[in-house]
Amino acid sequence: MKKIIYIASFIHLIIVSLAIFHVIDGVGKGRRPLIEKSASFYCSINYSLWHFGFISHDDVRSNELELIIYNINGSVTKYSTLDGFKFFVSNNDLKNRFYGFKITNAADVLIQDLCARSVATRMMNLHAGTTRVSYTIRSIIYPTMEGYSKNEPMKTQTVYTTDFILH
């Protein structure tokens, strides 16, 4: 029994190492999908598949999610994640969760469509008398330190935009 436990532990460490160092990312693509799928499933249980960055190169890219809510009485309410999504969550930890949300949103058109519909529905439920919700994702790239000291502006690009109108 002792031997089996030791062998299992070493196999676990080997799989974790392969996942962390991206070795199983491409293992058996097409050739041995069973190995890749099994390793991925195992790592998804303990989340070892996660690639550790702690402020990786991805984190320097920022995204803004802007919601504009138009009311039947003519008033317009604007929410922006540049304000930290404070309108939605009650503490800093929950605010940090929207960082991942925005990254996921900016990555895939299908997710953007689905999330936009969901967020718009939620906003319409929260704000009585809403006639239109405008949903926009912008990518923000900050200048380098050298660029900033030369007054280089930050670059903003609209990645996705959609409007939901109630008839």
Binding site: I55, D59, V60, S62, T81, G84, Y99, Y142, T144, M145
Partner: peptide, 9 residues
């Protein structure tokens, strides 16, 4: 690191 420190997130 600088961009992480200055970005609004």
């Amino acid at each position: 690191l600088w961009r992480s420190l200055v970005q609004p997130d």
